[in-house]
Nucleic acid binder design. Structure first.
Lengths: 257, 257
DNA sequence: GAACGCAAAAGTGTGGACACTTTATTGACG
DNA sequence: CGTCAATAAAGTGTCCACACTTTTGCGTTC
């Protein structure tokens, strides 16, 4: 069976008819987003070797933009590169995820603290307004929506810290844990999420850094433990799906642990 | 005047004779390190447009590995990419640097805290041993050596936190502020650096997280103010050097702010 | 029949070509 | 003279070709 990628997912790239040669001038960019999406959505499985030729065929572009995309993804931690052997999907280990959650907690807590110090009332107002605009029926949203809204909420705090580096770091971390977060959100319909966010907003209004940091830490801590469980589901979900891109016979990279 | 890059710096790439075709299989990797070094050392100036053809000629490889290297450098924040216009050296603004120092402080303080919680005596021993091995005549080293040793010291703390993400984040941040740190170290021969490190080690041995965090914060804070001054020197150093690669008439990228 | 080695196949790494876009240059027009 | 348009030059984005490396497959040997 020749390995093929779900066309529905990839369509975006080949969308605009392309009988004749090149003209788009952003194949790399689109390849980057498409492959990244495949990674986030588990279409490409952990430890799997990425075949450049196959990817280029699937996305309808040559290997050059594929490689440029993979290089970017490599420095962002989505994939790894072994010389002369190619790119591999980042492995999915519990420890690695816990580390990322820990990093996220650090960035977010620091962001909140700085926001309390620096943000003026109008800026804090943006946070309360945003939360007010999504709080109604928050839990009734589909998981994808919840995920986006939750990420936006936390990202807004990072932006209000006044340090754009914090915001971009958080965005990068979010992208890397998104795949597991989505699964975790599907599993746990915890109403405490809502009250937790409300309390965080309240602490922000009072400029109560200590309280907010504690809330955030617990908020994230809570998800970490849920993640442990979600991970089992994830692994199941990954290794049982029939439309695997790579052929069934899966082998670990012999050069890595 | 055709723009040329100091050959002495670049030599590393063409070092091993290459009359006949290709065979190395790591041109991208070497291009990455070479260009990164050029950026760190100010050989390539802020806001300057990077000419791929020229770079490829200078480094003796084709544009393909150059572009792969630039893509990686782009996602690491060293350069930016504007479609159809190419790669530009990250601009050198005070605010941006302060943000990076702040991020560094956040990562380091969190690392220290975690190290105190998690590292066993043998691991703390590595820290004390490393510091003991470099403390003698620390300030007498050339600036480059001081920089490397200082970075290693702080990186070791991040590693001892037990969270590899923290270590890799810190390494990335260090690379981005290295160019200004070097200049700053040249300027300020502050003996407090030494005692500061010693105190940090002492706090680590006592597992005194609060004390260590305070020391680190002050330690970095101190450098930030020195950086403000160093920046003036840097800008001078950059824009007065006669063999500027960019022509005198300097224009900002019209598509950016 | 298991281990080894050799040859074919698959796959990555890089050079080079060329279309399209941006930038620089030239010349006409006000 | 300065502004604008047309044109030429330079530069990027992408494809393709091919060398070199790794992996697979097969036959040979003990």
């Amino acid at each position: 069976m020749t390995e093929r990628i779900d066309t529905e997912t990839v369509e975006t790239l080949t969308g605009e008819a392309e009988q004749e040669g090149r003209r788009s001038a952003d194949s790399s960019e689109r390849a980057y987003h498409t492959i990244r999406k495949l990674l986030v959505e588990f279409k490409l499985k952990p430890d799997e070797r990425l075949n450049e030729v196959q990817l280029s065929r699937s996305l309808g572009v040559s290997r050059t933009p594929i490689r440029e995309a993979l290089n970017r993804l490599a420095s962002e931690g989505f994939v790894s590169l072994t010389p002369n052997r190619g790119f591999f999907v980042r492995s999915l280990s519990t420890e690695g995820l816990i580390d990322l959650y820990e990093l996220r907690s650090i960035i977010e807590c620091a962001s909140f603290r700085l926001m309390c110090e620096r943000a003026d009332d109008a800026q804090i107002g943006r946070l309360t307004a945003y939360w007010a605009s999504i709080v109604d029926g928050y839990q009734d949203n589909p998981p994808d929506e919840i995920l986006v809204k939750d990420e936006q909420f936390h990202l807004l705090i990072a932006e209000l810290s006044g340090n754009p580096e914090l915001a971009s770091q958080l965005a990068a971390i979010n992208a890397r844990i998104r795949f597991i977060r989505r699964i975790q959100i599907e599993r746990t319909h915890d109403p405490r999420q809502v009250s937790s966010h409300s309390e965080i907003v309240a602490a922000a209004v009072r400029r109560d850094a200590e309280r907010g940091v504690k809330l955030l830490r617990d908020h994230i801590e809570m998800t970490v433990s849920a993640t442990q469980e979600a991970l089992k589901d994830a692994l199941l979900k990954v290794y049982t799906s029939t439309d695997s891109i790579i052929s069934s016979r899966r082998r670990r990279n012999p050069r890595e642990g």
